[in-house]
Structure formats: structure tokens, C-alpha cells
């Protein structure tokens, strides 16, 4: 039982990271129909920027306090997302290029980001200091690393914020309107270009936070992006692309399936790597809309 409770904490923490990646896809996908595979590398960039600010990696004797690192990661990634949208996506959308064009261009962006990180920091992993230290933390019957609880708390805060944005603010309603019908939204006076730019900036900031949050557990390294990108869209497909809650649910289901499978199923540990892919294929075939269906268009 104790074992199971500990597993619950660690699975919830991983699930939160997957959920943030899924959320990053979703924020861009809803208004633009573009699936941005580059967000994995943006998470890695977030991790490196964070580690750079927190330790003396980028600047001698910098080691800034954690909130400063969070702020810098959000701003830097937001700017990067905005710049990528301006430089690669907007010209294509303006030209009326098919929707696969920006998706392929973003694959090019993915490689540019990853290889630039490799050139800047080399192939060695960089340890990232956890903000709450290393002591084992117990909250009621649940026990785990402080970072795991920290991940869960920050993720829930981000999801609450994004949910509030989509459901309660004018800008969020504008996003939804664009997702439902681009042309009608434009006719209603919604600035499509601004919505797209904001979507990329916000998506990049969320991905960067996911990278920063997971870095104390895995350390920052140049190969961390692609697995996160794959886990993210698996979570997205499980939960459904229509709703913010879907991303959270999908991430948690994926992480629990992964960790419970690895712990209790009698199969070789290497084969548990096949779990998410099998789950992804199953969901694509049986329930391509995901578990939570998009809201009915009224």
C-alpha cells in the first residue's frame, strides 16, 4: 500500500508534466489547427534557460532565486514562440499555404532549436537545483520528493489559470471563436494574427515551464525534447484536443498506465517503453476525439 501511494505521487507528477506538454499543443492547436512538434525542444530550451539562471552556467555568480528563474523562462520562451510564429508561421498563413506547410516548417524549427542547444551546451547533462531541496516530503499518507509535489502544485495553478482564461475572459472567448470558425471570428472583428501570435507565445511559455519543472528530476540535456513532445501528444490524443481539462486527464492517464504497468505487469522493463505508443495507437483507432469531447457548437 505504501508502495502504491508513493507510486501515486510519482505518477501524478509525471502526468502533470505530460499534461503541460499536451496543454502547450492544445493552446496552439485550437485556434490554428497547427500541431507544433517543436514544443519538445521548447521545453528543453526552458530547462536550459532555467538552469542557466539558477546556476552559474550562463553567467558567473548569477544563481538567481527561483521566482526570477521562472519569470525569465516565461518571458524568454514567450518571446521565442512569438518570434517563431512571426518568422515561419505567419508568412505561410498569409500566403494561404496548406496547413501541412507550417507543421513541416516547425519540424525544421525543431531541428534548429535542438542542434543549437547541442552546440551551446554540448551533449553532457546539466543538473538542475530543485527549489525545495532534496529532503523526502510527507503530506498525509503521500510521500515523495519535494519537487514532485512542487510540479503538481504549479501544474494545477497553470491549468486553473488557462481554464480561467479560456472560460472567463474576452481574449479566451476570442480563442474559442477562432477555433470554431476562423472566418466568422475574423468578420466579428477578432484579430486572427494577434490570436495566433499569442497562442504561440503562450504555448512556448507553458512548454518552457514543463521543461523547467522536470529538469531537477532528469537534469537538462539536449535529448530531453523529443520524448516530452511524444508523451505530450499522446496525452493530448487520450484526453481529446477540444478542452483544457482533457489535456490534464490525458496526461494523468498516460502516466498512471505507464508506471502501474512498469511496476505490476510481469513484462521485461524495456517493453514498458512500448506502452505509450500502444495506448496512442489504440486511442487514435478507437476514439480519435479523445475522452472529453469538444463542447457542442451552439
Amino acid at each position: 500500500m505504501e508502495d502504491f501511494l508513493e507510486l501515486t505521487v510519482s505518477a501524478t507528477a509525471s502526468g502533470c508534466i505530460y499534461a503541460l506538454m499536451a496543454l502547450s499543443y492544445l493552446i496552439v492547436l485550437r485556434p490554428t489547427s497547427i500541431i507544433n512538434f517543436a514544443i519538445g525542444e521548447w521545453a528543453a530550451t526552458g530547462a536550459f534557460v532555467g538552469v542557466g539562471v539558477l546556476t552559474t552556467l550562463l553567467w558567473p555568480r548569477l544563481d538567481a532565486p527561483y521566482p526570477v528563474a521562472v519569470a525569465i523562462v516565461l518571458v524568454v520562451l514567450g518571446l521565442l514562440g512569438w518570434a517563431v510564429e512571426r518568422l515561419t508561421v505567419r508568412p505561410l498563413v498569409k500566403r494561404g499555404a496548406p496547413v501541412t506547410s507550417p507543421i513541416l516548417a516547425l519540424l525544421g524549427v525543431l531541428v534548429i532549436f535542438r542542434e543549437t542547444l547541442t552546440l551551446l551546451f554540448g551533449a553532457d547533462p546539466f543538473p538542475s537545483p530543485p527549489p525545495l531541496g532534496y529532503r523526502r516530503l510527507e503530506i498525509g499518507p503521500f510521500a515523495g520528493a519535494p519537487q514532485q509535489f512542487f510540479i503538481i502544485a504549479v501544474t494545477l495553478t497553470i491549468f486553473a489559470g488557462v481554464w480561467y482564461f479560456f472560460e472567463r475572459t474576452v481574449w479566451g472567448r476570442a480563442f474559442e471563436a477562432v477555433a470554431i470558425n476562423r472566418r466568422a471570428a475574423a468578420l466579428m472583428g477578432i484579430n486572427l494574427g494577434r490570436v495566433t501570435a499569442l497562442a504561440f507565445a503562450a504555448g512556448a511559455a507553458v512548454a518552457g515551464m514543463a521543461g523547467l519543472l522536470i529538469s531537477p528530476l532528469t537534469s537538462a540535456h539536449y535529448m530531453m525534447g523529443l520524448p516530452l513532445a511524444i508523451q505530450g501528444f499522446t496525452a493530448l490524443v487520450i484526453g481529446g484536443v477540444g478542452r483544457v481539462e482533457g489535456a490534464l486527464l490525458g496526461g494523468l492517464i498516460l502516466a498512471f498506465a505507464e508506471q502501474l504497468g512498469a511496476r505490476y505487469l510481469p513484462i521485461p522493463s524495456g517493453l514498458t517503453l512500448a506502452f505509450p505508443f500502444s495506448l496512442l495507437i489504440l486511442f487514435l483507432l478507437l476514439r480519435p476525439t479523445g475522452l472529453i469531447a469538444p463542447r457542442e457548437v451552439r
Binding site: T88, P91, L92, A97, S101, L104, A105, L107, G108, V109, L110, V111, I112, E115, T116, L119
Partner: peptide, 12 residues
């Protein structure tokens, strides 16, 4: 990196 830039430029 050059390949990535080439791809983006080609598409654009």
C-alpha cells in the same frame, strides 16, 4: 542547424 534553416527557407 543549416539543414533546419534550409527546410524552413525552402517552405517559406
Amino acid at each position: 542547424v543549416i539543414f533546419g534553416i534550409l527546410v524552413v527557407l525552402a517552405i517559406l
